[in-house]
Design a protein around this nucleic acid. Structure first.
Lengths: 129, 129
DNA sequence: CGAGGTACCTACCTTTAGGTAAGTATGAAA
DNA sequence: TTTCATACTTACCTAAAGGTAGGTACCTCG
């Protein structure tokens, strides 16, 4: 099993985080794992539109950076589980803030100017799709 | 002045946010603008290592997506100011969470296993450099 | 016997992000 | 008169991200 080299920009926490969590898929994967451990196949089904190759790649990156633990149960047919580490749980506030910004942004940005009383739905529960 | 087409993935706030704030530089730019309006040249000096072309590009993206307002004072020599909009201020919690994760990650991930009493410095103020 | 599910790997390709280096028009300072 | 600073633009290039399509080894179910 090949590893990814994790490179960090020292001294800048923002750049560090972008190197860990940046990209199209990583936060979505962490979001699914936040609810509990998942097998590869389950993740593939839960994260919409991701390709197998990229899912493998991202899971490896997350494992190499210590956010996710990979457990191979050594069975046949294969059974591999992924779950968040304590370090991975540190990323959940980022996920929360990102989700909230996304909701607030679509709520605010799509007001066609002057629709006064239409920003009540800001705190409602919205699914991540 | 050319505009960037802002494309959003509807229905997923996380993907929406990544499309708005993702990439190497955007959060760093917002961080600088959080303290107050800045001219182009000041931003170039404050955001280390960014190239002019990319700074122009990112500022245009941020302006097109409504997070930043560009003000051309029409003077000669040119004087152009950038400042956060209300929408842009909505991104500050993301920036905060990202910064905190980065600090916590470097603090946690670099413990060489068993150095018990060395995680005291977690809440100290760290600069974004 | 053949199809389907497991968790991958590999080669190849396209798209995007980002970087380098140069040029532009203007005015002020040396 | 040359240089500097302003806020850009343009052309070109590289590297990384991501996507497509196929293969692998093993087992079970029909």
């Amino acid at each position: 099993m090949k590893s990814t080299a994790i490179t960090l920009t020292p001294g800048c926490p923002v750049r560090t985080t972008m190197e860990m969590l940046g990209g199209k898929w990583r936060l979505l994967i962490l979001h699914q794992l936040a609810a509990g451990p998942l097998r590869f196949g389950a993740l593939r089904r839960l994260v919409p539109d991701i390709s197998e190759k990229v899912l493998v790649h991202e899971l490896r990156h997350l494992a190499d950076s210590g956010l996710v633990l990979r457990t191979n149960h050594g069975e046949v047919p294969p059974r591999v589980e992924y779950h968040l580490t304590d370090l991975g749980r540190l990323a959940l506030p980022v996920l929360a803030a990102v989700g909230e910004f996304g909701q607030a942004y679509v709520a605010q940005a799509r007001l066609p100017r002057g629709s006064e009383e239409s920003s009540q739905a800001l705190d409602q529960q919205a699914s991540l799709r």
